[in-house]
Write a protein that binds this DNA or RNA. Structure first.
Lengths: 160, 160
DNA sequence: CAGATTTGTGAATATTATTCTAAAATAGGT
DNA sequence: ACCTATTTTAGAATAATATTCACAAATCTG
């Protein structure tokens, strides 16, 4: 069920490194690169999934292609009691909201939002955020340009 | 030969929706779901890649499994001239830095950083950020808990 | 509407995924 | 060290998928 003990060896790391860079790499290729049988790789990958080390595989789509050109970060102060996250879950349900983080200090959340343009952002704030009870205030930061945007983690190497 | 004209139909959207949710869905399955020949799907997927609509496929790995438990956002003010992004590129090269955004207003950047713990963050700020010329000041926001973290885009549906 | 281009189908072949059994490796306990 | 239980791997056999290609259908374009 939940995330069990995690004990990953360098073979797992190698698999993760490959998968992180191209999730569509097939078993046969991974097996060749690691010099192992495809069946062994398949077994390991399944376990990595079961152990929730690999959470999901997803295609990164170009926002421009879908006309989602505006990225914004919004700090949201709420009346949520510490520990409770009612507003957070409501925020998480909004499709345009890609991330919801409970942050320290400001008794609030930081969310990442993608809309087509400024009008879309205004619309979202007015018609969606505006209707959520418990939001006290918001502070929006507009992204002019994204230089890097990945979810890749630093994976330990055998010699480090 | 960058991103050319983008003209996506509802079949492309459907493929993107499937791929966004599970990048390892095989061609045959997609073909079955769309009621088309696998060869046709293969053709479309290749074109989506060529047109840079699909940017990459990646496995989302559990940060906890790799002992990267601390997520932080750091606002960085620099002496970069507007339009120039020297510091941004240096920041982008840091493995622990997952995102680098040029933001409006504060003549600075917002970066997203993942470290093992607070000590790792301090270490990064001191030994890596500290050595980058042009950084004037930083303001760090610690994430206590992440409620949602995805890169999924809103994909238009036929009836919307 | 004709010619040209794009996109799709269907079949054939190459490659890969998956399953299974036995061997090898590993971990624990004495 | 040794034996046993457990985990992991290899290897072969089979099922399924990927990929290619020729031709048909659909779609532009002018």
């Amino acid at each position: 069920m939940g995330k069990l003990e995690i004990s990953l060896d360098h073979i797992d790391y190698h698999i993760l490194r490959i998968m992180q860079n191209n999730a569509r790499t097939n078993n046969a290729d991974i097996a060749r690169e690691l010099g192992m049988a495809p069946s062994a790789i398949l077994e390991r990958v399944k376990k990595l999934e079961q152990k929730e080390v690999i959470l999901q595989y997803n295609a990164k789509i170009n926002p421009v292609a879908l006309d989602q050109n505006l990225l914004s970060f919004i700090f949201i102060k709420t009346s949520d009691i510490i520990g409770e996250q009612g507003v957070a879950y409501l925020l998480a349900e909004i499709p345009e909201v890609q991330e919801v983080h409970d942050i320290a200090g400001d008794d609030g959340y930081l969310i990442k939002v993608r809309t087509s343009d400024a009008a879309g952002l205004v619309d979202l704030m007015r018609n969606t955020l505006g209707k959520i009870e418990g939001i006290i205030s918001t502070r929006t930061t507009i992204v002019l340009e994204t230089v890097k945007e990945e979810q890749k983690l630093v994976i330990p190497t055998p010699t480090a």
